[in-house]
Lab assay of single mutants.
Amino acid sequence: MVIEDPKTNKLIEVEKLPDGTYKVTIYDKKTGEKKTITMSKKDLEKLLKAL
């Protein structure tokens, strides 16, 4: 799943891993910076609600 946040000009890509956690990659379209973090479903839901 890919989500675009027009306010921050970032793309957020979410991928479910076999162990039940989620790999979240955040791309900054302005700088080209890429950050990848792994989080639980509960933390991911908090992140998505904040957008």
Rank of each mutant, 00 (worst) to 15 (best):
I3Y: 04
M39R: 01
A50P: 10
I3M: 02
D43S: 05
M39L: 09
Y22M: 04
I12Q: 02
L48P: 00
K35C: 03
L47P: 00
I26W: 07
K46G: 13
D19I: 03
L17S: 09
G20M: 07
K49N: 15
M1I: 05
A50D: 15
D19P: 02
T36I: 15
Y27T: 13
K10D: 12
P6M: 05
A50Q: 04
L51C: 07
K30W: 14
L11K: 08
P18H: 06
E15D: 14
L47K: 01
L48Y: 04
T25E: 05
K34G: 14
E13N: 05
I37C: 08
T36A: 11
K42P: 15
L48A: 01
K10I: 13
D19A: 06
K7Y: 15
M1G: 14
K23Y: 06
Y22R: 02
K35R: 11
I3L: 04
V24N: 00
T21W: 10
A50W: 03
I3G: 05
G20A: 13
M1R: 00
T36F: 07
M1H: 09
T8N: 13
T36Y: 07
K42R: 10
T21Y: 04
L47E: 02
K34L: 09
D19L: 10
L17T: 08
P6R: 00
L44M: 12
T25N: 05
K42I: 13
K34E: 09
K49G: 14
P6N: 07
T36K: 03
L44Y: 09
D43G: 06
M39A: 05
T38V: 03
L47Y: 10
I26K: 04
V14G: 01
K30I: 08
K34W: 15
A50T: 13
E4N: 02
D28K: 00
I3P: 08
L47I: 09
K16G: 13
M39T: 04
M1N: 02
A50H: 10
K29W: 10
D19T: 06
A50V: 08
I26D: 04
K41D: 15
V24A: 11
D43N: 03
M39V: 09
K42F: 14
E13C: 10
E33Q: 03
A50I: 03
G20K: 03
N9Y: 07
A50F: 06
K41S: 10
K46H: 12
K42E: 15
V24P: 00
I37T: 12
D5C: 08
K23F: 09
G32Q: 11
E33S: 04
K7R: 03
E45I: 07
G32M: 08
K30P: 15
K34D: 06
K35Y: 11
K41M: 13
T38I: 10
I12S: 02
V24M: 02
D43A: 06
I12H: 06
I37R: 10
V2S: 02
D28S: 05
D5K: 00
T8A: 12
L17R: 06
V2I: 09
K29V: 08
N9H: 05
D28T: 02
E45W: 03
L47F: 13
T21H: 08
